[in-house]
Nucleic acid binder design. Structure first.
Length: 415
RNA sequence: GGUGGGGUUCCCGAGCGGUCAAAGGGAACAGACUGUAAAUCUGUCGGCGACGCCUUCGAAGGUUCGAAUCCUUCCCCCACCA
């Protein structure tokens, strides 16, 4: 190897391994990179699969996607597998129970929104997207059985979540056991050189190696990324737990949600969800351990960074100012949803005699009338800064009125 | 296939003929305090223009003045046996 190429290898390897948990098997992986650099093989095919079980990509997903982006910048080929077929199985990873199955239509709808969101981070022209239904739909039963011979029950039961469920006597359906096999087969079909995933995917990724070898394909190297904890600071970030920040969310939402991150998770978010430099990370670590620095300030910085990753430059600062105005100074936000007399009539509310409970529920500021009543009783509702606690409250719309429900739901009524 | 246990509101889990919209905990949501952090305290936690009414306790029937609670059938889960 020439010095030049050696330097290039070091650079690549450093980039590849930054922020990862496991890189396995390391020597194999390094060899692949070296061979690729030496022109003995093409760019590496880096695979990651996504099951479109919800329409939004959140920061948890971006940990892997941003790693893919780095590979892309190093000149490698990204292969995204949209698990239209595997979604129907539902990966039981980390789940204590069988997942509910989604309909094919729902999955395909989600898959579409996924694509757009991927390309907010990845370079579209250098990305191959494949749906795994492409090969699974065509499989005969004989082929499925053939696939099933490549793995044993004992090995499947090594997987932590399966063995726990098994011991605890929680149902495991046969089809769930197939999930690792299917994911592995994706790697066969795609001839993946590397597959990346969260640490909860380690088993599946390794299974991929076994399956590939069984089908006479070179085994992939695997690379795992840390799991980003959700806003609750405890569980994995996920849509179904509602503890996520979606990348399509408004600047205001992203900033606001960032502010609710637990203090001891601030560093983690900087490390896993932003692109700040290593030096900056060190600085943050120091500030966080300095008792004289209010962690809130660092969190605000995090919020700005996160907003700017998915919104135009300057929007982070704007979101911060807006936040400070609304929550610290309790002033009104910049933009408040508005309703005119015509809008009110549309939702069957008479502007001359507005029944507050109906307004709140019909304007979707609460799930139901009962919910609206509860909020009123709890003292969460104000009209023009006057707290209303009478559940029978009625009023007439005159001029402009500001209705506030809880801390963050505002509505401007216009006569 | 047999025997026994079980399926309760978002989750866990009590209830085992009326006082049950269903104990307790968790989650969540609001209020106070704050930094939309944590901790703490308080309240709410099926729906309805509501001191009443309607719909819920795996599903469908039945017994009863009255059922989450009893009976029948069915579906599902678990344990042991085969």
């Amino acid at each position: 190897m020439t010095n030049n190429r050696l330097a290039e290898f070091d650079h690549q390897w450093q980039t590849i391994t930054r922020g990862t948990v496991d890189v396995l098997p390391e020597e194999d992986f390094q060899q692949k990179v070296k061979d690729s650099l030496a022109g003995k093989r093409g760019p590496l095919r880096i695979k990651q699969g996504f099951d479109p079980t919800s329409p939004d990509i959140h920061l948890g997903h971006t940990v892997g996607i941003r790693k893919l982006r780095q590979f892309q910048e190093l000149g490698h080929q990204i292969v995204l597998i949209v698990g239209d077929f595997t979604s129907m199985v539902g990966d039981p990873s980390g789940q204590s129970a069988t997942r509910p199955k989604l309909s094919y239509d729902e999955i395909m709808k989600n898959a579409e929104t996924y694509q757009d969101q991927f390309f907010r981070i990845l370079d579209k022209s250098k990305t191959e997207i494949r749906y795994n239904g492409e090969w699974f739909k065509e499989m005969s039963f004989a082929e499925i059985m053939e696939l099933a011979t490549k793995f044993t029950v004992a090995r499947i039961l090594e997987r932590d979540d399966f063995s726990k469920r098994f011991k605890a006597g929680v149902a495991i359906s046969i089809h769930e056991l197939f999930y690792p096999l299917m994911q592995g087969y994706d790697s066969v079909a795609m001839k993946a050189d590397v597959e990346i995933g969260g640490t909860d995917q380690t088993f599946n990724l390794l299974a991929g190696r076994t399956i590939q070898e069984a089908f006479g394909v070179e085994a992939q190297a695997i690379l795992t990324m840390p799991i980003l904890v959700g806003l609750d600071g405890v569980k994995k970030m996920s849509k179904s737990l509602g503890n996520y920040i979606g990348i399509e969310e408004s600047a205001r939402e992203i900033f606001g949600k960032s502010m609710s991150i637990a203090d001891d998770k601030i560093y983690e978010y900087f490390e896993l969800a932003t692109d700040v430099t290593l030096e900056k990370l060190e600085e943050i670590k120091k500030s966080l351990s300095n008792p004289d620095v209010n962690p809130m300030l660092i969190k605000k910085e995090l919020g700005e960074k996160l907003v700017e990753m998915y919104h135009p430059e300057g929007s982070g600062k704007a979101a911060r100012e807006e936040f400070e105005r609304v929550f610290s100074q309790k002033k009104l936000p910049d933009e408040i949803p508005e309703m005119t007399v015509a809008d009110l009539e549309k939702i069957e509310i008479d502007p001359s005699k507005i029944f507050l409970v109906h307004l709140i529920s019909k304007a979707k500021m609460a799930k139901s009338g009962s919910e609206a009543r509860k909020l009123i009783k709890a003292g969460a509702v104000t009209i023009d800064d006057d707290k209303i606690t009478d559940v029978d409250h009625e009023f007439e719309l005159t001029g402009e009125m500001i209705l506030k429900v809880g801390k963050r739901r505002f509505l401007k009524l216009i006569d």
